[in-house]
Amino acid sequence: MKKIDVHAHYGVWTSPIPSANPVDRLLRLCEREQIEYMVCSSALALLYDMQAGNAEMAEAFQPHEQLLGYVYVNANFLDESVAEMEAYLPLDDFVGIKIHPRLSGVACDDPRMADLFAEVAARSSLLLMHTVDRYAAHQMAEFSRQYPGLNIILGHSGHTDANEAARLAAETPNIYLDFCCEWPGSGKVERALQICGAEKIVFGSDADLLEPAFTRGMFEGADLTPQQAQLIYRDNAAGLLGIPTDTANSPQPQGTQQG
């Protein structure tokens, strides 16, 4: 099944991954996993240098329509972050914003984060937010109510607080969940399906820090219906990115298939 991966990275990591061109690695994963579009943030920007990382990724992705970018912004550097958004969001292959509270050292409830959100919401309709606990998830829900035009993907779905993240997604129209996580705890996808429905879940892999097949395994273990799989793997993200729904491959709702 075709997929859109809303949570990936461009760059290198400290983990033992044999050296190869990062673009080549991502394209190989896309081919193997049938990933039609992969939306990435820069590892260099996340870990060391925001401006250099965004610039490096923009240049590397320019020849590859399949690879899309998030502009990484950092609440420590509001003016510089605004400049980064102004520089890259007009480009066709930059589709949203990425924020990582832990790596930037600015908590979600820090006033600087509120200032950054105001600037983000003024410029973008999509944010991928690293969200690994219920407190961050609740803060995101508050921001999402404040900025209804900003769709917020809770990256990692609150980690072990995934049930709470799902409850917030259920009650907040512009909150979405992505389940990539180093801990593939069984049952969390099924519970989210019950709490917020497949319409609020998107596929994110955390590639190539994590293996897309590892994340895909969570959904395979959850025994998705074809309709749920189509929404999660592709169509929900397509809606967020403004990509046409893959109607040719969309399964018919159960009950109409046997007509």
Binding site: P184, G185, S186, A213, F214, T215, R216, G217, M218, E220
Partner: peptide
């Protein structure tokens, strides 16, 4: 790590 973790996450890693 069953039953705590999804089995296909672990098997997929080795299978691919």
């Amino acid at each position: 790590n069953s039953p705590e973790s999804y089995f296909p996450s672990a098997s997929g890693l080795v299978n691919v």
